[in-house]
Amino acid sequence: MEAADALASAPRRSAGRRLAGLFHGHGGLQAGALLSGPLAWLVILYLGSLAVMLVAAFWSVSPLSGELVKSLSLDNFKTLVDEPVYRTIAGRTIAIASLVTLTDAVLAFPIAFYMAKVASRRTTAVLVVAVLMPLWASYLVKVYAWRQMLSTDGVINWVLNPLGAHGPGYGNTAVWLVMSYLWLPYMVIPIFAGLERIPNSLLSASEDLGASPWTTFRRVILPLAFPAVVAGSIFTFSLTLGDYITPQLVSNNQFIGNVVYNNVTGGTNLPLGSAFAVVPIVVMILYLLVARRLGAFEHL
């Protein structure tokens, strides 16, 4: 009835009011208007470009003119399997991503636990800011700072040399260190949120029933917080998997991203670059499937 009233008095209203009237009472139209922008973004720009990339992976490059040949073939994937260097690079990327994830989980858990269960409200707030603060600084500045610190005359060697030791220099170890530093906040925050959700009464109950602190941690806290750790690991793992600037600045070793970059910026072999880019996508899909089984999505 209200809609009918609105329509009846429509001629005297401005265009804006009429438009508002059109939407009134039409739930589907409302939702459509609200979501069409984000959906267009998601489908056309986000999934669309992904689809183009996947299709390009099956194209090839004409050896004579260097132009794209848009006929489907599996040659690029064959190259990736046949040439051992691509396996080495994929293996290295996945191994370092796993190592970074493990390191961040080990480092982040005590920090998050302290923030969620031990510290006062005020201290927690300060710590949350402290954890997030590095994210305010430019990624490049942070990596260049590490590059300086890790150099032969850098501060790490300056501290270690008098003790008869020397720093790792540039290489895989440096990549692992820098990545673990860069992505730590992405692990701390989900674990903190997960731990905060555990009611303190559960911990008291465990204690009342005679469990030692270690047993409480092992049998109550860890199982409840584990999905949050997995949620954090999605970030640390995927961010490491996709990075190509850090490996370039603190090592000579190529990541999947470097090979993709070289093939695409060279303007020479977009299809091979696209094909190699499928590897991290597949790895991430598998990772997310496992993460879902472990209940990580309830903690994102």
Binding site: P63, Y86, N253, Q254, N262
Partner: peptide
């Protein structure tokens, strides 16, 4: 380019150079 400039066209083109460079750096 694959054209060697001396009549034969079995030279390595830039695409091959890019792939080889990936292999060299490992």
């Amino acid at each position: 380019v694959s054209d060697c400039g001396n009549g034969s066209s079995d030279c390595k083109d830039y695409n091959d150079w890019v792939q080889a460079w990936t292999g060299i750096k490992g």
